[in-house]
Design a protein around this nucleic acid. Structure first.
Lengths: 207, 207
DNA sequence: AATAATAGCGGACAATTGTCCGTTTGTCAA
DNA sequence: TTGACAAACGGACAATTGTCCGCTATTATT
């Protein structure tokens, strides 16, 4: 959550903080770096940091903003191209899942931290944003459910609820879930893409 | 030869701690109660509490132990009865999902806290148990994948990976996911059961 | 340019989780 | 019993997250 500063020098501090955080994260790993440490290393007060980013999740979100925007454009472009090539909705959904998993892999460190910070308990009592209100979820859910609705409307599937199924697909992409699949079963990224499609996409389509 | 025996009075403190925690949880809600508060109210030191339960998740797990065992027996009994009644594997899977969702609803408060405490970040760096090693997950995953394998072996389904799909089903039952479905879409518990089956069970079966 | 208003800084402070260590106390051998 | 030994207690202490408030420095005004 970025506060737009009225003082001109405030913007410089924002950049300083972001740079410092990026450096510390790559040096020691996201989880090992504390907010206090970021502030101290950047040479600013605690409040200066917290005024910009209430939680580490916000900071992480800001740090992956560029990459996320590129990913968004990628997805939009990819889907347009496939549609122009007159690929089936089934094929397009599979391609989307592949790109999705790839993104979650690339940004696993930051996503990890975001999920960890925005724990379920923060949602009700306190009035902080839940994960489901963050841009990545909103975009993913919108894109996936649109495609799923198209599949449903095509008449080639069994009945299902696009929004609900999209929600479940995203849930399955949570960092700790993917990590568990990698570690426990030794699945490669390709395995996971294939099995996700086999579990959540392919069975929807009548043969 | 000196045998070092366990002290008998330690068990009493354990019960005192559990009773205190239960009371505080019901009085103020699980999330609002701190470990320090539990120790202080029980009149014991911090270490005495932490020596027994390293995290609030462990404490919660202990508190729902009775209920979880009853649930386990319920599930086993339910599945046996349905099998004796010669219900199809499809029907049995749906019934299992229903009972599953019911349990997650009943114990949502404790499960909530467990998920919140055992955040993904605790898994790699520190050597704490991940959620996937806790008894509830292990039992659920075992039960579901066994049933799913039976479905697969029956030849009445499309191809899929029982263990993987079981994993995804459990993931979808995470407290914050269910909570979001309730809040955002206004789904009732029955809705969720129906949609879960429509998303993850029914499409597997050839018509 | 001088000055008033205030955006915004910084560090102290509170709350929570988790650890360490000196001390107590139950247990068992004699 | 008694006494040695270790299991186990308790509270102080460290680290982290998040908040508050007095002060500084920038900006707008004249």
């Amino acid at each position: 959550m970025l506060v737009t500063p009225k003082r001109k020098d405030a913007q410089q501090l924002t950049e300083l903080i972001l740079d410092t955080a990026r450096d510390l994260f790559t040096a020691h790993g996201v989880d090992a770096v504390s907010m206090h440490q970021i502030a101290k290393t950047a040479g600013v007060g605690q409040a200066t940091l917290y005024r910009r980013y209430t939680q580490k999740a916000d900071l992480c979100l800001e740090l992956m903003d560029d990459h996320f925007n590129r990913f968004k454009n990628d997805v939009i472009l990819l889907l347009e191209q496939l549609q122009l090539a007159e690929e089936t909705i089934h094929t397009r959904l599979n391609a989307l899942v592949r790109r999705l998993v790839q993104f979650c892999n690339d940004e696993s460190a930051l996503l990890h931290a975001i999920h960890a910070t925005i724990a379920p308990l923060n949602c009700i009592e306190t009035e902080k944003k839940s994960f489901f209100q963050f841009p990545p979820y909103v975009f993913l859910h919108g894109t996936i459910s649109t495609l799923m609705r198209e599949a449903l409307d095509s008449g080639r599937t069994v009945p299902f609820d696009p929004a609900f199924n999209a929600h479940i697909l995203i849930t399955a992409l949570a960092p700790h879930t993917l990590q568990h699949l990698h570690q426990e079963y030794g699945y490669t990224t390709d395995d996971i893409v294939e099995k996700l499609c086999m579990a959540l996409i392919n069975p929807l389509f009548k043969s």
